[in-house]
Design a binder for these strands. Structure first.
Lengths: 173, 173
DNA sequence: ATTTGCTTTCAGAATTCACTGAAACTTCCA
DNA sequence: TGGAAGTTTCAGTGAATTCTGAAAGCAAAT
């Protein structure tokens, strides 16, 4: 029978691999998601070389994606005393992860859409033809809806964990 | 000064182009998003050849993406009497579009994640070591949260427009 | 000032993903 | 049954993205 350590390693490897594959489905690149998975399940901060070894990727790749994760706020840089190199540690709180991803996705997906819709609606508001008015109205409807989504995302993203749970419970009750 | 028809055409072209670019940001391919934008702003159903001409794409490409949109449920096939070829018409109701996209994204993004997390959690529940238990607990937390998200998506996706508006109003109030 | 240990950048290679165009297929009509 | 009109498929091509590896940069230690 497999030792505990083996079982754990196997589960963790699967998690890393699958979380990476999932990253692709979301708009996130595979390596970035894998590194995130690796860090989320690491008992302690790890360095670039460990990441390289574990995922069998190049230094450049590891570096770029670690820094991108730091930019997102999903990962923090840790300096150990007596050590010259940098270590990395992931945010592990699920609600934190969620709010960060929500913020980031809103920025990339919702905000640009809103600005396009606004421009298209404004540019056609004076049209007189039936087709022109239909187009304008369609743009306004989309704009209104996406604006709504934007506000909801802001609101949810700034909620405290407990409050969100309450809210969701009410929604699902 | 530009005629109304020109203004409309320009606005529509911009919408199609930008909605397409946005599609990339979301996990949707550019052409598919462009066709969707084209159909959403078309006063009447259009055929494959018009799509090809308007977007300057090949027949194969137009065909594949039109059919994919039909599979999603964002576009319907329309047959005109006396016409042999198929025409296509987009769902224009914003709330409908939203629920369809929500359902589809849940299927592609949330459900697979849930199954991975479940597998990883189950496979480690008997571990005794501190690292094993930490891993298990992390998987459980993620699983619980994503399960929650899954239920919320279901619930929201099956709401009637009016009810959702009410709910959102309360959330934003 | 030089070395050492690590970080950062980036041009080109590799990989992945989307698109084309043409052939095969299906359906309707004469 | 033949053929005209339209649909579907897919091998090959092309574009976009991601990754590598090596060189350059930087700062602490000697």
């Amino acid at each position: 029978m497999a030792s505990e350590a083996e079982q754990l390693k196997r589960a963790r490897d699967e998690f890393v691999a699958q979380w990476g594959a999932m990253g692709s489905q979301w708009g996130i690149n595979r390596t970035m998601a894998q590194i995130h998975a690796l860090l989320m399940t690491s008992p302690e901060p790890i360095g670039t070389d460990e990441v390289m070894a574990e995922l069998e990727i190049s230094r450049g790749n590891a570096h770029t994606n670690l820094k991108e994760l730091v930019t997102w706020g999903l990962v923090r840089v840790v300096v150990k005393k007596g050590e010259r190199r940098e270590f990395f540690e992931a945010e592990k709180d699920v609600w934190q992860i969620f709010t960060i991803v929500t913020r980031e996705r809103k920025k990339r997906e919702i905000d640009p859409a809103l600005s396009v819709l606004n421009r298209c609606a404004e540019g056609t508001k004076a049209l007189k033809s039936p087709e022109g008015q239909a187009f304008h109205s369609q743009m306004r409807q989309l704009e209104e809806f996406v604006g709504f989504a934007s506000k909801v995302a802001d609101r949810v993203g700034s909620m405290k964990h407990g409050f969100a749970i309450q809210m969701a419970a009410k929604l699902l009750g």
